[in-house]
């Protein structure tokens, strides 16, 4: 008995000396995410598409602007996908290597999506959290401004901008960035309002923690879940927006291209029997969109349970 109790005591002391590691909500979410099959499938798709965009050029036998004169004029007969002449995805109507062009188009589409979404995260979060936290007249003013901006048919404005200032990637980024944060700021503001009513925010206010610190320490970390999910789902939206503009012929300028522009060209020539010109860009387009949607959904499932 005596030995036993001594053993117990020393054991208790030993366990109380070592700091126990905590299991954060992030760790929980990560575990849930990696267990989600659809999300993992989406992640695999995204990894594949990203590797394709990043490393595709080192496999490509041609650049995206070189014209292969041996197939020019006979694209329908000779320009199909082939390993022997190095046009893995065939060529486009002018005889340019479609593989290289798809790599380059995927790069542009991903960049537009990710940058648009990143702008939304930064601007929308700060804007929405400020409006939501301070509330009152400031909130009213800030959110009415967003309403007004949202009421403007942005596609029209974007097209106008592209026509006026010429088609350029910068212009595209600016245009996409200008609109992407609006919806985000609304979502963040709504979530901030909910968080503001939570007791731990009240506790922090009672302690006397200054407002900017409350926003940084208590509001933002609890917004990350919503923001991440929305940002992930925003990427495919931005890609779709860009594609639409490219489809109209107002996107990036030749010889640069984007998935939307490639799809547009491929669709235009489908009558000549060059199905591959549509199929390959479309495949990567769809893979990218599915990847982001699956991952976004998985993130939502993984991050949500706490807020239930």
């Amino acid at each position: 008995m005596v030995i036993d109790s001594q053993k117990m005591k020393s054991l208790a002391e030993a366990t109380s000396r070592e700091d126990v590691a905590g299991r954060s909500l992030w760790a929980d979410a990560r575990r849930r995410f990696f267990r989600n099959k659809a999300a993992m499938f989406g992640l695999v798709l995204l990894v594949f598409v990203s590797l394709f965009a990043l490393l595709g050029n080192s496999i490509a036998q041609w650049s995206n602007e070189e014209i292969d004169f041996s197939v020019m004029g006979m694209v329908a007969e000779q320009g199909g996908p082939s390993l022997s002449n190095g046009h893995y995805f065939g060529t486009d109507d002018l005889g340019r290597d479609l593989f290289a062009r798809t790599v380059q188009g995927t790069q542009i589409s991903l960049a537009v999506g990710i940058i648009g979404s990143a702008i939304a995260v930064v601007v929308g979060t700060i804007y929405g959290a400020t409006a939501g936290y301070f509330g009152g007249r400031l909130d009213n003013f800030m959110m009415r401004a967003v309403d007004i901006l949202l009421a403007i048919p942005y596609m029209f404005v974007l097209i106008l901008l592209l026509v006026m200032y010429g088609r350029s990637i910068t212009m595209l980024f600016v245009g996409v960035g200008l609109i992407s944060w609006l919806e985000m700021s609304r979502i963040v503001r709504g979530q901030t309002l909910t968080l503001k009513g939570r007791e731990y925010i009240e506790a922090a206010r009672a302690i006397g923690v200054p407002a900017p610190v409350i926003i940084r320490r208590h509001i933002l970390p609890n917004l990350i879940g919503v923001v991440t999910v929305f940002a992930t789902l925003l990427v495919p939206n931005m890609i779709l927006t860009e594609s639409f503009i490219s489809f109209l012929g107002l996107g990036v300028q030749e010889p640069m291209t984007s998935l939307g522009a490639l799809i547009s060209e491929g669709a235009g020539t489908i009558a000549y029997g060059t199905l591959w010109q549509l199929a390959f860009p479309l495949l990567f387009f769809v893979l990218t969109l599915f990847g982001f949607f699956f991952v976004g959904d998985g993130l939502r499932d993984a991050l949500d349970p706490k807020d239930r």
Partner: peptide, 22 residues
């Protein structure tokens, strides 16, 4: 005066930020 007056809240879990360590 806020450091001289402290408060304890009704809902113990809700009054603690879930993202912060104890």
């Amino acid at each position: 005066y806020r450091s001289e007056i402290q408060m304890i809240f009704q809902d113990p879990l809700a009054s603690l930020n879930p993202r912060m360590t104890v």
